[in-house]
Design a protein around this nucleic acid. Structure first.
Lengths: 156, 156
DNA sequence: TGTTCACTGGGCAATGTGTTTAGCCGTACG
DNA sequence: CGTACGGCTAAACACATTGCCCAGTGAACA
């Protein structure tokens, strides 16, 4: 579960040049091909590397507006609300949280006007008592993992 | 910028089996290899597909706790705060938003106790006036893009 | 001491890649 | 009405990479 320095370098290399092959990696890292292959297999079966899915940009798909919505749920309706939200394509992510809200989700929309439609669809469900939305203006730090990988690879 | 049905199928296929090659894709989709190659190149230069970086699970790396923090920033300190937060490895993501808070970030930590350390580090900066944190308990809908791709591919 | 494990370095056949070619077809445009 | 263009197909080629095998080595450990 803990990763060592070589694992870290493999992930970092993969993050920088995803299309790179195992052979080229072994050359760059100065280790045998079999080693890289074994490490990669282990990282994947460990669950450290979940996959290599394409990173799709919602904005390029025509959904340039992102927002976060905090939802308050009627007691005992949690499961229904989850199923409802999972059925809305514009809901990219959903978490249940502690704090003032009960759930928090990430939404995208085609425009600010379209966001209204999305929100209506999200909250137009019986189990949801209240929603408060924050529209994202800028994204100074896009979702990243590399600094954490570096930390984990060095620290351990 | 808009994607058609074939683009959608390529992305979907890639999302399901990321390690698949261009040749195998062309076989499954029933089109020529050159077509798939051309589409993929276009999707990437379009920015629709940003890359194929490995998806790393913070939990498997030893950071099982996720939280969202809403930050209030002292006027005019935005740039400094961004730089500060970008330097914290446990800050996975940062947005500036409308609404009650000025910024919103996603944090990870090794434990609830460790989260305290992370938050202290995050808010231990002059430009940050106030922070309120919501700890994630469950993640019923992990970050996803496929439903949106399907929608974009069919609707357009 | 003996065993296990990770890594090395090599070899092999099979497969995929990058790239180019030519031909086909529908469409937009002069 | 004809033509030029863009997207797709199909095939070819040299080349690199993959998946898989093996034997040997060194370190950790019982």
């Amino acid at each position: 579960m803990a990763i060592d320095h070589l694992d870290g370098r493999i992930i970092l290399l993969l993050a920088r040049e995803p299309r790179i092959g195992v052979l080229e990696m072994s050359r760059r890292l100065g280790v045998a091909r079999g080693t890289v292959q074994a490490r990669l297999d282990r990282l994947q079966s460990n669950g450290v590397i979940r996959g290599f899915g394409p990173e799709v940009d919602p904005a390029a798909l025509g959904y340039p507006v992102t927002a976060f919505a905090t939802l308050q749920i009627r007691q005992g309706q949690g499961a229904d609300v989850r199923a409802h939200l999972a059925g809305v394509p514009e809901v990219l992510e959903l978490h249940t949280t502690t704090g003032t809200g009960d759930m928090m989700c990430r939404l995208v929309a085609r425009s600010n006007a379209d966001l209204q439609r999305v929100i209506d669809r999200v909250v137009g469900f019986d189990g949801i008592v209240r929603a408060s939305t924050a529209i994202v203006m800028e994204n100074p730090v896009p979702l990243r993992i590399i600094p954490l990988v570096e930390q984990a690879a060095l620290g351990e």
